[in-house]
């Protein structure tokens, strides 16, 4: 399941709703990405996340489908926020559920590595001094994604 929204999410409630009282799930991994209050030695006052409505949902669904093709997940959820966010606020939630932890951990990491390099979101940070700038993509994110390319199941 994927969701793109401006509103915050409650991690506990999302996990509970996703699992829905199932008793066959042995492992649940949750990853939450949050807005940091600093970048490159500067204080960050706020961030605006722009996205491409329509393609964002399509890309996230594609990434989730790929994860479910690679690992035997019993449930999965990706929520990504957009709009104006302040330090400490949630940006993204990934939840994966499987019988065993190995699959849940790997799938959660895969989902994050793939969504960071393919979902059409762009962050613009405003520093404490009021200067706004677009966040640059990191090579380390491409490298993190590349790790999975060689091991298609």
């Amino acid at each position: 399941m994927i969701r793109v929204q401006a509103e915050d999410f409650d991690i506990g409630k999302e996990v509970e709703a996703l699992l829905g009282g199932r008793t066959d799930i042995g492992a649940v991994v949750t990853f939450t990405g949050r807005v940091r209050d600093h970048a490159g030695g500067e204080r960050i006052a706020e961030m605006v996340l722009e996205h491409y409505p329509g393609m964002t949902e399509a890309e996230l669904a594609r990434v989730e489908e790929e994860a479910r093709a690679r690992w035997p997940l019993q449930a999965s959820l990706v929520i990504h926020r957009f709009g104006r966010l302040r330090p400490g606020e949630n940006i993204v939630l990934v939840v994966t559920a499987a019988e065993h932890r190995g699959d849940a951990f790997a799938a959660a990491e895969f989902l994050m590595d793939y969504l960071k390099t393919s979902a059409p979101f762009w962050k613009k940070e405003t520093t404490g001094e009021g200067a706004a700038r677009w966040v640059e993509a990191r090579e380390s994110d491409d490298a993190a994604r590349a790790r999975w390319e060689g091991e298609r199941k």
Binding site: I91, K116, T117, S118, F121, W134, V135
Partner: peptide, 10 residues
């Protein structure tokens, strides 16, 4: 057709 910088979500 859309044009945009490298993505920076997550």
């Amino acid at each position: 057709i859309a044009f945009f910088p490298p993505v920076t979500g997550g």
